[in-house]
């Protein structure tokens, strides 16, 4: 495993497809908090599936004022089918062309396998990384680490006041 970006680093911007005809840039979230969940691939076995778990936790993430973006090197059509099958209610970024470029910029690309690492980042309202975590690729990291980190951050209203 390489070194993923650590807290304090500026979160590299990206502007990439979320559907076959729509793109999304990280900079659009400035002023808000964003969870970036890099994962190896769509369609991993369902019961232990990280994105389905996060889909379930989405209301909790939002209670802390955080949006969630899933990112893998799958294409937009693949993401669309996967999101529909699992009723995912958050965007999946296609880090497909050039393949893995976003993951690479976060230090979260596995060149040997051609997939993203299972890496988590919280980007704060100023566009900096507030927390990051790299999980072994076979281990779904769960959501407890993200929620703990969000809980430790100053309240967003206080920051914006």
């Amino acid at each position: 495993m390489g070194e993923i970006l650590r807290p304090g680093a500026k979160a590299p911007d990206f502007d990439a497809p979320v559907t076959p005809d729509q793109k999304l840039a990280l900079s659009e979230f400035r002023g808000r908090r964003v969870i970036l969940a890099f994962y190896p691939a769509d369609w991993s076995p369902v019961c232990g599936d990280q994105m389905s778990l996060y889909n379930l936790v989405l209301p909790e993430f939002r209670k802390y004022g955080a949006e969630l973006l899933g990112i893998s090197a799958d294409g937009a059509w693949c993401h669309q089918a996967y999101a529909k099958a699992n009723q995912l209610h958050f965007p999946l970024i296609a880090d497909f062309h050039p393949k893995g470029e976003i993951a690479r910029s976060y230090g979260a690309y596995r060149d040997s396998d051609g997939v993203a690492e299972r890496a988590l980042f919280i980007v704060d309202e100023s566009g900096h990384i507030a927390w990051s975590h790299l999980s072994p690729i076979a281990v779904n990291p769960g959501a407890d680490g993200i929620l703990d980190a969000l809980e430790r951050m100053p309240r967003l209203e206080a920051v914006n006041a």
Partner: peptide, 24 residues
């Protein structure tokens, strides 16, 4: 139950804890 599980690190089902430690 679900929310408590999420906070305890449940990462799929079934998820077991033996004397409080997650059994992987």
């Amino acid at each position: 139950d679900l929310l408590g599980g999420i906070r305890s690190g449940v990462n799929g089902t079934p998820c077991f804890f033996v004397n409080g430690r997650r059994h992987d």
